[in-house]
Amino acid sequence: MNLFRLLGDMTHLLSIVVLLLKIRTVKSCAGISLKTQELYVIVFLTRYLDLFTKYYSVYNTAMKLVFLGTSIGIVWYMRYHKVVKQTYSKDEDTFKHYFLILLSIILALLIHRAFDVIEVLWTFSLYLEAVAILPQLVLLQKSRNIDTLTGDYVFLLGAYRALYILNWVYRFLMENHKFRWIPWISGLVQTALYADFFYYYIKSWKNREKLKLPA
């Protein structure tokens, strides 16, 4: 465990805390893409298959349970909670996210490090996470005004994977890890998709103005 990875995990956890804070306190999920949340549940389910078969540390197991529990809880809130589900921007959350799942499955079957169930599903989870934010970004572009907590949530979610890239650089240099194409490329694509959001988020933060993405 290095500082970059710890910071990355904490940033990821914080993004989920911010999202839960928004949903629970404001009792609203306006501006949040249910499709992105559902994709994240699939990412965690397919990535943490070794939860009960491989033990790395208390931290690793605890964090996997937290990420699985909160992501499933958020989908439940947005789908079934009587108040919250009324606030879901159903008509604007229109991205065809099933294509993302299909593409990721095909890519994982074609490009992987080993052809066994755990490895292919793990690879699938990396490809899917790289594009999971797309429905959310498309929804943000349609939202006239993006509330602060939603903007902070997306920013933290993007920042965590950027920190993971630094963690991979560290592991490559300091732990003389071999270069791993799949996580690296997936992580770079994932972070690159946030590029223009980062630009407008930081600009709105500097100019103290409301966050607005160009349509």
Partner: peptide, 10 residues
């Protein structure tokens, strides 16, 4: 071993 392939990460 899997750690080698970042399976020890979240």
């Amino acid at each position: 071993d899997y750690d080698e392939d970042f399976h020890d990460e979240l």
